[in-house]
Every structure is written in C-alpha cells, then in structure tokens.
Amino acid sequence: MQDLARLVATEDVRRVMARYVYNADHHRWDDLAALFTPDAPFTASAVDGSVQARMTGRDEIAGQLKSRNHPDSVLVHHLYSSEIDFESEDSATGVWAMEDVIARSANSPGEPTGMHGYGHYRVRFTRQEGHWLIAGLRITRLRLDWTY
C-alpha cells in the first residue's frame, strides 16, 4: 500500500470509529449498526474477561443496543490513541483506548445509576465497494466503576 493511500485509508477508518461513538452517544442504534458488515460479530467483555454481551449482524446489534439503553440514559464515549494496521488495501485492524460513561435516569432500587468504564476497542475492518465497515468489534475492559 502506497504512503498516500495508507494515510487516506487510516483517516477513513478513524472516521468510522468517530461515527460509531457519535451514534452511540446519540442513541442512533440503526446508524451505528449500519457501520458494520451484515454478519459482523460484536462482543463486550467484563474486566475479568467474561463475555457481557455477544451480538452478530446489524439487526441483532441494533436490537440489543436499543433494549439495553434506556432512551433517557446519557452516554458519553471517548476514543484515544488509535493504532491501525493494514493487512491489505481492503483489510485492517485497529485498537483504540476508550473511556465511556453511562448515566441512567430510570432504574430499579439497588441497581446502579451509572457506570464509568475504561478499556479498549479491538476492531477488524473491511473495505467494500469503496467504504470501510466494521467486520468485527470487541470491547475489552480494564476497569469499571459503578455508581448507585
């Protein structure tokens, strides 16, 4: 891959992740799911490595995220220090350090009202018809702080 093509592709991949967190923060679950390939896996792990959520494909991703996030919740996601490697002109992997904050206004007694998490997004990308899409996404957690 030539230097200029690599720079353009790097920026395109970064913009996919920027759209991902923007859509998450604004509860635009269908738009977020559209950033994935039709059969992409999405996995979120707890600090101990156990799987908290596993979804496959756009419909399941949008559906589970809609059901897990109350419309009145406030979501804030930050991405830091991306590392992007290209396997070919149409295939890449990336790792982003991340931080997310969730504040819930509706919860049952004894349930947490919020969460502040830290970890990494580990992402596989593919370029199809000139557009980069998420071919797989895994969230790994380093720390979760709950508020009650």
Rank of each mutant, 00 (worst) to 15 (best):
R54T: 12
I84A: 06
L79N: 08
S81E: 12
V51Y: 01
Y148N: 14
P71A: 06
L32A: 07
F42Y: 11
S91E: 06
M55G: 00
V8T: 14
R138F: 05
M1T: 05
A5T: 15
L133W: 04
K66M: 08
T43K: 09
D59Y: 05
R15H: 14
R124E: 13
M1P: 00
P112T: 08
H120S: 07
S108K: 15
Y118Q: 10
E129G: 11
R122Y: 03
F36C: 04
T126R: 10
Q52P: 02
R141V: 06
P71T: 06
V76G: 11
G119M: 02
G94N: 07
W146I: 10
A9R: 02
D31T: 04
T56P: 04
L4S: 12
D90K: 09
D25M: 08
S45I: 04
V13A: 03
A53P: 01
P38G: 07
D59E: 14
P112L: 07
E89K: 06
H120D: 04
Y22G: 01
F36A: 01
P41E: 10
L7W: 11
A97F: 05
L133I: 07
L65Y: 09
A92S: 02
H70V: 03
G130E: 06
R58H: 00
D100A: 07
V16E: 04
A53V: 14
S45H: 12
V101P: 01
